[in-house]
């Protein structure tokens, strides 16, 4: 097989649920060895996109390839090289920690003895070896999530899909997972992750796509995207009576959220110089972050969803 530099390629990918679009014509390409993130508000279509790549949710239209194989035609072969850590907790409650791994390995046709040794190695990697015999309901949230990721690695996947790997965890547990994902990345794994944590996306991802209402709004390197679309710094202050006059005088992009004015400044010192002429209380400046970009592109208002 001629190896394309892309491990996953999607063209005009669509998914309708009973005629309602959950994903409407997206294009993206994920490179080999890349850690690629999907961001977007609830209901944006991230999980739906993952489930199409996993070959569990049939695509409505468009084309999707994984490692040169076609989703919808080579499903079994694709599933064999993918590892999936789903968004919902789907560990096998009836089985012990190690049996969760061994039984799952059985679905990939991995012989039992080999599965046990791979499983023990994975438990060690995720610092869970003492809980080998434990029941699932005795594990903490962080351990469960680690076990879900360990299970996804049982078939030594070429590509790992992580749907919100760190959601609902405390900071320690989250950082441990990030550390492990970095380890995996340095071993050359291709990974796709979806997340609501901007910190996670900016620290881990080589590239991200921001989705909103089933479409991809922006794609690129997190730092680059912030610089390009937000600026270097963000200046925030409470709006006073002469807000129009103030904002008219500065030549930068801004946004108003309630009584807060947010300026995305390419040239922060010039903005501050202009603002100094007015009496403004509670002014703050800080470096622009991915969160600013996210809120800017997907809107600050809570959406009721499609």
């Amino acid at each position: 097989m001629c190896q394309s530099p892309y491990i996953v390629e999607a063209q005009s990918l669509c998914k309708l649920y009973n005629g309602v679009a959950a994903v409407s014509g997206i294009n993206f390409r994920i490179k080999r060895g890349e850690l690629y993130g999907f961001l977007g508000p609830n209901g944006a279509g991230k999980t739906t996109t993952m489930r199409m790549i996993q070959c569990v949710s049939p695509i409505t239209s468009g084309s999707l390839t994984v490692n040169g194989m076609f989703v919808g035609r080579d499903d079994r072969d694709i599933k064999a090289i993918i590892g999936v850590a789903p968004q919902d907790d789907s560990l096998d409650q009836d089985l012990s920690v190690i049996d969760n791994l061994v039984v799952y390995a059985g679905y990939f046709d991995i012989p039992r003895n080999k599965a046990i040794s791979i499983g023990e190695g994975l438990l060690k990697f995720f610092h869970m070896e003492e809980r080998k015999k434990a029941r699932i309901d005795s594990l903490s949230g962080g351990m469960r999530r680690r076990l879900v990721i360990a299970r996804a690695l049982i078939n030594s996947p070429t590509i790992l899909i992580l749907d919100e790997p760190a959601s609902g965890l405390d900071p320690q547990a989250r950082h441990l997972i990030w550390e492990k994902l970095r380890d995996l990345k340095s071993q050359g794994a291709s990974m796709i992750l979806t997340t609501h944590y901007m910190e996670e996306a900016s620290q881990l991802c080589d590239r991200i796509s921001i989705m909103d209402q089933g479409s991809i709004v922006l794609t690129g390197n997190p730092t680059g995207l912030v610089k390009e679309n937000v600026g270097n710094e963000v200046i925030e202050f409470s709006i006073s009576d002469n807000a129009d006059k103030i904002l008219g005088s500065i030549n930068e992009r801004y946004e108003i959220d309630g009584d807060l004015c947010i300026i995305y400044a390419k040239n922060p010192s010039s903005v501050l110089g202009k603002l100094a002429k007015y009496e403004i209380s509670s002014l703050s400046r800080r470096p622009a972050t991915l969160e600013d970009l996210f809120l800017k592109t997907t809107g600050r208002q809570l959406k009721s969803g499609p």
Partner: peptide
């Protein structure tokens, strides 16, 4: 659901 994520 988990089983369907595998080649089964």
């Amino acid at each position: 659901d988990s089983i369907l994520n595998t080649p089964v």
